[in-house]
Simulated scan of single mutants.
Amino acid sequence: MNILDDLKMQYKLGGIALKMIYWNIGCFLVSLVFFYQFKIGAFDFPNWIALSSEPTVFVLKPWTFLSYAFFHDGFFHLLFNMMVLNFASYLFLTFFSSKQYLGLYVLSAIFSGLIFVLGFNLLHYSGSIIGASAAIMAILVAVTTYSPLMNVRLLLVGNVKLWHITAVIIILDLMQFRLENSGGHISHLAGAFFGFSYIKLLQSGIDLSKIVSAILDFFTNLFKKQQTPFKKVHKNYRKPIEKPISKIVVKDKKQQQIDEILDKISKSGYESLSQEEKEFLFQAGK
Rank of each mutant, 00 (worst) to 15 (best):
L179K: 14
D252L: 08
L102F: 10
V143D: 04
G191N: 10
F80G: 02
I25R: 02
Q10N: 08
G14E: 07
F92P: 04
G74D: 01
F196H: 08
S197L: 14
V106R: 03
L154W: 06
G119T: 13
F193L: 15
A109P: 04
Q37D: 15
I129Q: 02
I129A: 04
D5F: 12
K225A: 15
I16W: 00
L179H: 11
V152W: 06
G269I: 06
I245D: 01
G103V: 06
W23L: 07
F282Q: 14
A192H: 07
L32C: 06
S133G: 11
K264R: 13
V212T: 13
G26R: 01
I129M: 06
K200Q: 14
L107P: 07
S89I: 03
D252M: 03
Q203P: 00
V141K: 03
L102W: 03
I199V: 13
I3N: 08
A284R: 07
G158A: 05
D6Q: 15
E180Q: 13
L118E: 06
L189G: 07
E279N: 11
F58A: 03
T56R: 12
I170Y: 03
I211K: 11
L122N: 02
L201P: 01
G158E: 05
Q176A: 15
V117R: 01
D259C: 08
W23F: 12
